Simulated scan of single mutants.
Amino acid sequence: MRVIVRYFFRTLRLILTPFILLSEKLNTPKSLSRTAEEQALADEASKNLALYQFSACPFCMKIRKEIARLGLNIETRNAQHYPQYRAALEAGGGSIKVPCLKVQRDDGSERWL
């Protein structure tokens, strides 16, 4: 019975994923308008950030929409489809739970949020 339930939800996820991603594309807000200098400062502040995420995760989608709304250039790394990102997330973050933000500090240390 447990196997049937597991496959039911996997199939449901497979069916709903394209609709979730389409919904994100259609509902992503416009970014804030900034001057070139302000945008350069925002880009400089966010250059050491990387978001580990899954493409169809609703929490990740919410974070990506907020990043787009704020007009930040944060690198997104799909830990679902790329094993090197998944391994880095598990090693640095402690477990494979997304969304997870990796902050690379200037002294070379890392912080996982």
Rank of each mutant, 00 (worst) to 15 (best):
M1E: 14
M1K: 12
R2V: 09
R2H: 04
I4F: 13
I4W: 07
I4R: 10
V5A: 14
V5H: 13
V5R: 14
V5S: 12
R6A: 00
F9E: 09
F9V: 15
F9D: 11
L12T: 03
L14S: 04
I15M: 05
L16E: 11
T17M: 08
P18H: 07
P18C: 04
F19I: 06
I20F: 15
I20Y: 15
I20M: 14
L21K: 11
L22G: 00
E24D: 08
E24Q: 08
L26M: 15
L26F: 15
N27C: 05
T28K: 09
P29C: 07
P29I: 07
L32K: 00
S33Q: 14
S33E: 15
R34K: 15
T35K: 05
T35I: 06
E37H: 09
E38Y: 08
Q39M: 06
A40S: 11
L41M: 15
A42T: 10
A42F: 14
D43A: 06
D43R: 06
D43C: 07
D43Y: 04
E44G: 00
K47I: 06
N48Q: 10
N48E: 12
N48A: 14
L51Y: 03
L51N: 01
Y52S: 03
Q53I: 10
Q53S: 12
F54T: 04
F54Q: 06
F54Y: 12
F54M: 08
F54A: 05
S55G: 02
C57K: 03
P58E: 04
P58D: 04
F59Y: 15
C60L: 05
M61T: 11
M61I: 13
K62N: 07
R64E: 10
R64P: 03
E66Y: 05
E66P: 01
A68E: 08
A68V: 10
A68Q: 08
A68M: 10
R69F: 12
R69W: 10
L72G: 01
N73T: 11
I74A: 08
E75D: 01
E75I: 02
E75G: 00
T76A: 11
T76W: 04
R77Q: 12
N78T: 03
A79R: 00
A79D: 00
A79I: 01
A79Y: 02
H81W: 12
Y82C: 05
Y85I: 02
R86F: 06
R86W: 04
A87E: 09
A87K: 06
A88P: 01
L89P: 01
E90L: 11
A91Q: 14
G92R: 06
G93F: 03
G94M: 09
G94F: 07
V98R: 03
V98E: 09
P99A: 06
C100E: 09
L101N: 03
L101M: 14
V103S: 05
Q104Y: 13
Q104M: 15
R105A: 14
D106M: 10
D106R: 13
D107F: 11
G108P: 00
S109F: 06
E110Y: 04
R111N: 05
W112D: 02
L113F: 11
